[in-house]
């Protein structure tokens, strides 16, 4: 029986369809904000797993070896694998926590947790009139919570409201999910548990409890946004974190120049970057910004050609598509696929 993490890897391999190497999974789970990883996560509908698990490269290699040994996957190239029928069967009952949405909340999850955990610790100690050492130490979080508290008064009333908001929110989850979150909190009289310790108490796989924890945070982020009036305190902890466009910072600069009407070559010259780098940026923009038009780089006719070939060959492998078509560049194929990868990910 493969471990939970092994099943996650197996699931990713299944989605990747033998078209990406193990490194893609490593970067996906660790949330590497490169154009390639961001695109891949969308193309293969793995964006909900983006940045949700900190794993080592060696761990993934080890898992792949085990999976191959158990004939759940087979090697098709150096470190590229395809899931066997037996492997697909093993995934039949496998599912992920429902609210997991890594890429969508990638810029918010960590900061939101840090602020919330420090706030809970602070307020809990204020009500009990005890001193404490902050469990979060980065100055940004410390400053945020300090200012947040300074702008509000009456610790007892705050405690009551925060308690009610958390209770209302957690009541919508099941027992285990709520425990996974609450046990990690540090408060008066108790330092919070680590993920490993929570897993031990629940007798669950640590990778599973980690995903469950992320799922709870994503549920918090989603719900407090939708119903901000019902969760004013929790919403205020994340109101400034929301970023509408999840682009890497270099891509953002390219996007700004594009919006000023610069051509691709002009941008390359201004930014002193290679043309191919700017092309990477444009693919990233196409994958992430729904209203971004790729028409200036690719005619509608050609786009449809590419999509037809991709569907006929049932592949996202660029080389295979390029060989089947005349007169299209890799850049254009990537653009077409990036646009398609858009939309809601199905699980």
């Amino acid at each position: 029986m493969p471990s939970y993490l092994a099943k996650v890897v197996l699931f990713c391999l299944s989605r990747l369809n033998g078209e990406r190497s193990l490194a893609a999974i490593y970067h996906l789970l660790n949330g590497k904000k490169s154009a390639q990883t961001l695109q891949d996560s969308k193309w293969y509908h793995l964006d909900f797993l983006f940045g949700t698990l900190a794993v080592q490269k060696s761990e993934i290699l080890h898992i792949a070896n085990r999976l191959e040994h158990e004939r759940l996957i087979e090697r098709i190239d150096n470190d590229t694998y395809k899931v066997t029928e037996k492997g697909e069967a093993a995934l039949a009952q496998f599912s992920f926590p429902a609210y997991l949405n890594g890429l969508r909340y990638v810029n918010e999850t960590e900061a939101f947790w840090r602020r919330l955990s420090l706030l809970v610790q602070t307020i809990s100690n204020l009500v009990h009139e005890t001193t404490f050492e902050p469990i979060q130490r980065d100055e940004e979080t410390l400053l945020f919570v300090k200012r947040w508290l300074l702008s509000r008064r009456n610790a007892a009333a705050l405690a009551q409201s925060l308690y009610e908001e958390l209770h209302r929110l957690l009541s919508r989850l099941d027992e285990k999910e709520a425990n996974v979150f609450v046990w990690r909190l540090t408060s008066y009289e108790r330092i919070g548990l680590t993920n490993e310790q929570v897993a031990l108490v629940l007798q669950e796989d640590p990778a599973y409890t980690q995903l469950l924890f992320q799922h709870v945070l994503h549920f918090f982020l989603k719900t407090t946004e939708k119903e901000s009036h019902r969760f004013p305190l929790l919403f205020s902890l994340r109101a400034d974190l929301y970023e509408t466009i999840p682009l890497t910072s270099s891509t953002k600069k390219t996007y700004e120049l594009l919006q000023q009407g610069r051509t691709l070559d002009e941008i390359a010259r201004i930014r002193r970057l290679k043309r191919s780098t700017i092309e990477d940026h444009i693919v990233e923009i196409a994958a992430n910004i729904p209203h971004f038009s790729i028409a200036p780089f690719l005619s509608e006719e050609k786009r449809q050609q590419i999509m037809r070939v991709a569907e006929k060959l049932r592949t996202k492998k660029l080389r295979m598509i390029k060989e089947a078509l005349e007169d299209v560049s890799y850049f254009q194929i990537r653009l077409a696929l990036a646009k398609r990868g858009d939309g809601d990910g199905d699980r």
């Binding site: 009990h128 007892a156 308690y163 009289e189």
Partner: peptide, 18 residues
């Protein structure tokens, strides 16, 4: 030993309500 770990409802009460 330290205070035993309880289910979330009780933990939450312990944290916030003096």
């Amino acid at each position: 030993s330290s205070i035993p770990l309880k289910a979330w409802q009780e933990e939450l009460r312990r944290m916030f309500l003096a």
